[in-house]
């Protein structure tokens, strides 16, 4: 019986394990090995030196963080009050969530392509701003930092919002009522009960939004200045892999990317555990 059970278990898990080993772990380890080897295959740190030693390459980290961190913070900071406002459902919720899911589904490429015209010098947005009289000359929204940041926000905000909305609707409304009955005003209830309970959800949505923003690629090329101010780390990795065909340096950059992300994610999780000591005990939240 025990042997049969174990055999069954192995059979059930085998396809998924084979899949993850061959398509994820093996490539990742392969990349790790490549990043520490020279073209002849012997061990070297030159690939990392090449990245960190070159100011032009090294600064892609700051460029990427400089775009992705503010955008992620803004997305989540905007998402929290919106999710809070809609936690009990409101009229027109379906229409609103539909418009939120559209940019996520369509993806960066289409949004960037649309933004080029819509937010361009003669696009509708500038026409509107000038007609209202907010600005006298067209504002430059594209081919700079702001183009990339806006495109990331257009996707990052609904992503964080919908995630938080799913999370917040799982918090029992009785907890807010209980807080009120104990004498807490609406603001006190938010600060002392609702927000702390949202922390795990905020942490997760921050992590996932950050991962998406940090690996920004198509919009940094199409909407930014890929040869300068918005030369992000994924452009650099792509450049080394498919334009220089130096897979060793490209792998090193990929590893650096993954490492930075894991670093930020673990930082967020540490913060979450500080904020929410009950988390490990409460489990489901």
């Amino acid at each position: 019986m025990s042997l049969g059970r174990r055999g069954g278990l192995v059979a059930l898990l085998a396809p998924a394990v084979v899949f993850i080993v061959f398509l994820f772990i093996y490539p990742f380890l392969y990349g790790l090995v490549l990043s520490f080897s020279d073209p002849s295959g012997s061990f070297t740190l030159a690939n990392y030196e090449r990245f960190f030693g070159d100011w032009w390459e090294r600064r892609t980290i700051w460029v990427t963080l400089w775009i992705s961190l503010p955008v992620t913070v803004a997305s989540v900071a905007l998402a929290v009050p919106f999710a809070y406002y809609m936690r009990r459902g409101i009229r027109g919720e379906k229409v609103i969530t539909f418009f939120l899911i559209v940019p996520i589904t369509l993806g960066t490429v289409l949004v960037s392509e649309g933004m080029l015209t819509y937010m361009g010098p003669t696009g509708w947005l500038n026409q509107l701003l000038m007609a209202i009289g907010v600005v006298a000359k067209p504002v430059r929204f594209t081919h700079n930092y702001w183009g990339v940041a806006i495109s990331l926000l257009i996707q990052g905000f609904p992503f964080s919002f919908l995630m938080l909305l799913g999370y917040i609707s799982g918090i029992s409304p009785d907890l807010e009522r209980a807080s009120q009955m104990l004498g807490a005003s609406r603001i006190q209830t938010f600060l002392r009960v609702t927000f702390p309970l949202m922390v795990p959800g905020i942490a997760i949505s921050f992590c996932l939004s950050f991962v998406a923003a940090f690996s920004v690629f198509p919009s940094a090329v199409l909407l930014g200045e890929p040869s300068g101010p918005t030369r992000v780390i994924s452009i650099s990795a792509y450049h080394w892999a498919f334009e220089e065909f130096n897979f060793n340096v490209a792998s090193a950059i990929s590893i650096v990317m993954a490492a930075i992300e894991l670093l930020v994610i673990s930082g967020v999780l540490v913060w979450r555990n500080r904020m929410y000591r009950g988390a490990s005990i409460v489990g489901k939240g």
Partner: peptide, 29 residues
């Protein structure tokens, strides 16, 4: 408003704050 009525309420599902210890739940008000 409910918070200024000075009434107490025990909810069916207790509605204890999961992120606070027992002492902090009681000390909340």
């Amino acid at each position: 408003p409910p918070e200024r009525r000075e009434f107490g309420m025990v909810f069916q599902n207790y509605a204890l704050f999961p992120h606070l210890s027992v002492a902090n739940n009681v000390a909340f008000g």
